[in-house]
């Protein structure tokens, strides 16, 4: 499973593999600050733990963050991390993808690219398999109420290391369009 492969990076950032994107970011910033500046916790051991040694740690922190972040954006900021990204497809598509909204098929594609099975998602997120599939295939008519749906989408997106808020917003927008169309008819 994806998150397990990346366990060492989560370990370096001292967060659990179910950390959200924002937790990854704040852990990175906290550790970067901790090891780059003098402070009450560094000064007392600064002689035996000098900046030169801390630089090695900073490098690991930087590396772990880069790896996790490049993984977490679907095509968005990847130009600088292309080598690492699992979803990179070449320069010309980057710009287009940046504005591509999340949808059922996009989530499905990302999941497959990352080699994660439906049952694996279900086991780790506690979302039912049928529901995940219905979300991916956009079977709007059988999906739960919007508030619940929104929650499921963000949990699922977070699991795929995507921006949960953007994913939920994009998906719900599409869901609403479908709903208003139905109501018109």
């Amino acid at each position: 499973m994806l998150r397990k492969e990346y366990k060492k990076y989560f370990d370096v950032l001292e967060i659990s593999p179910d950390a959200s994107l924002s937790q990854i970011k704040s852990a990175y910033l906290r550790l970067k600050r901790l090891y780059s500046a003098e402070s009450v916790v560094i000064s007392p051991i600064a002689d035996e733990f000098p900046y030169k040694r801390r630089q090695k740690i900073l490098k690991q922190i930087e590396g772990a963050y880069t790896a996790l972040i490049s993984l977490s954006y679907h095509g968005q900021h990847k130009s600088s991390y292309r080598g690492e990204s699992l979803t990179s497809k070449g320069g010309s598509e980057d710009k287009k993808e940046k504005s591509t909204p999340f949808s059922g098929p996009v989530l499905r594609q990302i999941r497959k690219e990352r080699g994660i099975g439906l049952y694996e998602v279900a086991l780790d997120t506690k979302i039912r398999v049928e529901l995940i599939e219905n979300i991916e295939l956009e079977r709007f008519e059988v999906l739960p109420q919007e508030v619940y749906l929104k929650g499921h989408i963000s949990v699922y997106a977070n699991y795929l290391l995507l921006d949960p808020k953007k994913a939920a917003d994009d998906y719900i927008k599409k869901y609403r369009e479908w709903k208003s169309k139905i109501e018109e008819e």
Partner: peptide, 14 residues
């Protein structure tokens, strides 16, 4: 409170 997490980090990494 962050000092607690910082010390935890230093003990592990150092």
């Amino acid at each position: 409170i962050i000092i607690g997490s910082s010390i935890k980090s230093i003990f592990m990494k150092y």
